[in-house]
């Protein structure tokens, strides 16, 4: 394949995929911004329980938050491995990122199941509606990232993830880190700052 077909450069000298992906991340900021705005606007306005203070499990969510933060570290180490052409390093850390993402999803599935068991569903009250939509949307993004990174891991096992694919891995990393920073905000405004 010719260089022109693989490089995707623009007149700025920047990779078009990376420019487009940052624009996509900008649009995702607006999506999550509107969901967080909705949650905060209706926070404390539920007329029936369960209320956040009765049901949110801070220790459990702190652990899942730590796991997601460490998955971001694993992701940059995977990119470092791909950039250096160290396939073993890339494989180990990509697998770690996928594993940590899956563990985070496991925590979220347990949390949702626990909430439903305690009477909080999407239609119970304003807290349930806004909480499940916000965290569920984030969880779907994590699931998308786990699937994406798993596909890269498979490519790595087929020896198709060399330094020439560093930009592909970097873009997947951008997505993963964005999902991480969104959770940093959600953990603070939903779990740690409870107003009702």
């Amino acid at each position: 394949m010719s260089t022109a077909a693989t490089a995707h450069y623009t007149s700025t000298g920047l990779d078009t995929r990376k420019i487009a992906f940052w624009a996509f991340i900008g649009s995702e900021c607006l999506l999550f911004g509107s969901l967080i705005a909705t949650y905060l606007s209706y926070e404390g306005k539920s007329v029936v329980g369960p209320y956040p203070g009765e049901i949110l499990d801070i220790p459990l969510t702190s652990i899942s938050t730590f796991v997601l933060l460490m998955s971001s570290l694993a992701m940059v180490l995977a990119l470092d491995g791909v950039t250096k052409g160290d396939n073993k390093q890339a494989r180990i850390w990509l697998a770690t990122t996928v594993l940590f993402g899956a563990i985070f999803l496991g925590f979220q599935a347990y949390e949702f199941q626990h909430f439903v068991h305690n009477g909080l569903t999407l239609s119970t009250n304003l807290f349930g509606s806004t909480f499940f939509v916000l965290t569920g949307c984030h969880g779907l993004h994590v699931l998308g990232g786990v699937i994406w990174l798993s596909s890269l891991l498979i490519q790595s096992y087929r020896n198709k993830l060399g330094p020439d694919k560093a930009m592909t891995v970097e873009i997947a990393g951008l997505y993963w880190h964005f999902v991480d920073v969104v959770w940093i905000v959600i953990f603070t405004v939903v779990y740690l700052i409870q107003r009702g």
């Binding site: 420019i19 900008g26 900021c29 607006l30 999550f32 911004g33 705005a37 905060l40 209706y42």
Partner: peptide, 23 residues
């Protein structure tokens, strides 16, 4: 420069909606 404007806009939306609904 691509990232910050939508981030600021999102922050503005959050603050504006909270102010509008008095929460």
């Amino acid at each position: 420069n691509i990232f910050w404007p939508p981030l600021l806009l999102a922050t503005g939306v959050i603050l504006a909606l909270m102010a509008l609904l008095g929460n």
